[in-house]
Lab assay of single mutants.
Amino acid sequence: MTYRVRIENADGEVVTIEISADELREKGLTLEELLPPNARIVEVEEVEP
């Protein structure tokens, strides 16, 4: 499974990243732990691999 994640950074700019569930598991991280300081998740969407 892959996630498309929209993130708002500290400057108010919204960027989109895609990350797979396998990648998260391998790194032992959650989506929140990948965020840079002062950023927030705006939207998470599951996409087909």
Rank of each mutant, 00 (worst) to 15 (best):
E46S: 09
R4D: 00
V44M: 06
E18I: 15
E23H: 08
E46K: 11
K27E: 03
E13D: 09
E32Q: 12
G28L: 04
V47Y: 11
P37K: 09
A39P: 02
V44C: 08
K27P: 02
N38Y: 14
L31S: 00
A10K: 08
T16G: 02
S20F: 06
G28R: 07
R40Y: 09
E46T: 14
V5T: 01
S20G: 07
I7C: 05
L35A: 04
V14G: 04
T16N: 04
N9S: 10
E23S: 08
N38M: 07
D22V: 11
L35E: 00
E18D: 08
E33W: 07
K27S: 12
T2P: 01
P37L: 10
E23F: 15
A10F: 11
V44G: 01
E43H: 14
R4F: 10
G28A: 05
D11G: 08
E26A: 13
E13N: 11
E48Q: 14
V15P: 00
R25S: 08
K27R: 11
L31Q: 00
R4V: 07
T2M: 15
E33L: 06
S20I: 04
D11F: 11
Y3K: 02
Y3S: 00
V44W: 10
P37M: 08
A21P: 04
V42L: 15
D22W: 15
K27D: 02
L34M: 13
E26L: 14
G28W: 04
V44H: 02
L35Q: 01
L31E: 00
I7F: 15
L34R: 03
T16F: 09
T30Q: 06
I19V: 09
L29G: 05
P36L: 04
E43W: 15
L34W: 15
E45I: 15
A10N: 08
L29K: 10
V5K: 00
R25N: 09
I17H: 02
I19M: 03
D22A: 14
G28M: 06
T16C: 10
E23K: 05
V42C: 06
E48L: 15
I17K: 02
I17A: 01
N38C: 08
N9M: 15
E32N: 09
E23T: 10
I19E: 00
L35S: 01
E18Q: 07
I17M: 09
V14E: 09
P36D: 05
P36G: 12
R25W: 09
N38S: 06
I17Y: 12
E43F: 15
E33P: 00
V42E: 03
A39I: 11
L34F: 14
